[in-house]
Every structure is written in structure tokens, then in C-alpha cells.
Amino acid sequence: MSEPVLSIENLSVSFSSRRGVARVVDGVDWEVHPGQTLAVVGESGSGKSMTVLAATGLSPRGAKVGGTVRLRGEDLGAMSEVERRRARGRHVGFVYQDPMTSLNPVMPVGRQVTEASEEHLGLRGDDARSRAVELLDMVGIPSPEQRVDNYPHQFSGGMRQRVVIAMALANDPELLIADEATTALDVTTQAQILELVESLQERLGTAVVWITHDLGVVAGIADQVAVMYGGRILEHGTVDHIFGSPGHPYTQALLAARPQPGVRADRLATIPGAPPVPHQLPPGCAFYPRCPVRGDERCRTEEPPLTEIAPGHRVRTFYRAPHSGIERPAS
């Protein structure tokens, strides 16, 4: 297999406050290869966004970051801040949930799309402009020659997100990071954006890390899936592992909590309580207080290791529940 574009090893992020130390990311490992999509799934406070921010050197002030991150094989921790910034700007593109937070409302979109190319590739003037037109065309914005001079407010939500994707792709990055990139969009627009990213990925061989809480999106786009909870990875495997034979009680409960199309059950399976707050993590397994399996004292006091249960399928639990994945009539 090819060398990973981004690999993180034993990544941790913690914050100290008067209320104690909050370990928001704890011992996270994963890697993503060219042309592949890794989906990082979790609920609020699971640490899914912070993992990626820390991995790219963008964690907020006051965060204590540990572990090793390699971008294209190079250790980001060994770089100076300037080198890190250059590597990130040149090789990584970001797409966030709300396009308006990524766009400057008083600058024409064309200039914004190539701003990073001016910085990192030295693109100027007419070259920058024609590159902007090319990028807008690539992400499916109609009549890009005219639209290049428009301002963000003259675009719809879906079109703005396309502009942000054009911006993220401006330097031909090897890695695209999408943090809830379609969450604020309507489903029909979401479908358009997912298709766009898929086709661009196929053409350009970009690796994608897609952070989301939406299991439907994950099933559609991911090759690999990491399920996070309380700052840790609880389960990691291929998309078929996670949906077809989930090994962790949390993954199973999450899959069961969604209403199944065509099945109008009286009651949905629920997970009692709410996700844990980072500075009040339980001592043992983070999921123990809400776990339907509820093993024993060991679960309460000891953190289970992430164990391989099949090649490429790792689960962090002492007790795997018997149920397995989506029920599908045998064909």
C-alpha cells in the first residue's frame, strides 16, 4: 500500500482549567492514504474535530498536544511554526460546516479562491484570475467567468460551499479535511456536494478526512471509519466492518438509534443519558455509564485496550455484544 498522506500516532490533546484537566483527545491513531476517505464519526464532545485540528497544528491556545503526526511522511512536530504553516497551506485543504465563516463577505470570491495560491505558489494577476475561473468551473459553478467577481452574499448556501471547496482545492492538496461540510445544507444540496467531492477525489487522487455525526453520509462515502467517544477511538475498521459487523456496544447502539426506513417500530432503541463532558470522564471505559452491555467492575475502573478482532477491525471493549449490524434478508 502507498505511504499515508497523513498519519497520527498516539495523539492526545488536553486542557487545564480550574475544573481540572480535560482530556479531549486521548491516544488516537489513524492514517489516511491517497484517494481514500476516512470518516471520523462521533457525537458532540467526542473529540472528532479536535483530533484533526491538533493533527494539522491548528489546536486552540492552551491545548497540550502529544503524539506524532506525519504529513506526507514528515513529522509535523519536528517543524518550526513557519514550516508547519507552509506544509499545511500547500498540502491540506479545509472545508467547514458553515461556508460563511470561511468566506470574507467583502472580497470577491475569485480572489478568495486563489488567495492561498498567491501565498504558497506565488500566483499573481491574470494567472490567479484564470486559475480562479478554472477552479470555480471544476466545482460546478455555472458561468464562472462572471461569477468570479461576485461576492459571497450573491451565492446560495450550496454554491458557497462549492466556492469553499474550490478554495480548499486551489493548491492541489493531497489531503482534504471536511468538518461537517454538508451538515448545514439541505439533503438535495448535500447529495450534490457529496457527488462533487467523490468525483474530484477520483480525478485528483485526494485523500479525504470527513468528520461527521451523520451515519448515512459515512455509509455513502467512507472507506475507513473511526468511531470516537469521550476523546477516544472506540471502534475503527472498514465501512463494512462498522455497519455490517459492529463490535462495540456504542457503535451498535448508535446504529440502532436511527429510525430504519420502511420499519415503523413503536420504540427506537435508545442510549440513556448524554455523552460525557471532557473534564468529567469516567475512570474506566468512557461509555460504561451508558452501556447496555454493562460488563462488570473491570469496565468501570479499567480502560479497555483497542483490540483487533479481524484484520483491520479494532474495538475498544471488554465485552462485545452479540448483535451484529444491519439486518439484511439473505440474497
Binding site: T188, A191, L194, F243
Partner: peptide, 26 residues
């Protein structure tokens, strides 16, 4: 079209899916 755009939490169904993609915006 709306129903065909909703992703389902089933990778196998997603691979078979034929989306009716709507063009443009509302």
C-alpha cells in the same frame, strides 16, 4: 428526488444507490 438524496446507514445500499440528482438551487 428528495428521498433518493437521503443517505442511508447501509454501505451496501449506498453502493447500489441510483440518485436522482436535482440540478441548481431552489
Amino acid at each position: 428526488a428528495l428521498l433518493s438524496a437521503v443517505p442511508t446507514a447501509d454501505p451496501e445500499a449506498e453502493r447500489r444507490r441510483r440518485r436522482i440528482t436535482l440540478h441548481g438551487d431552489v
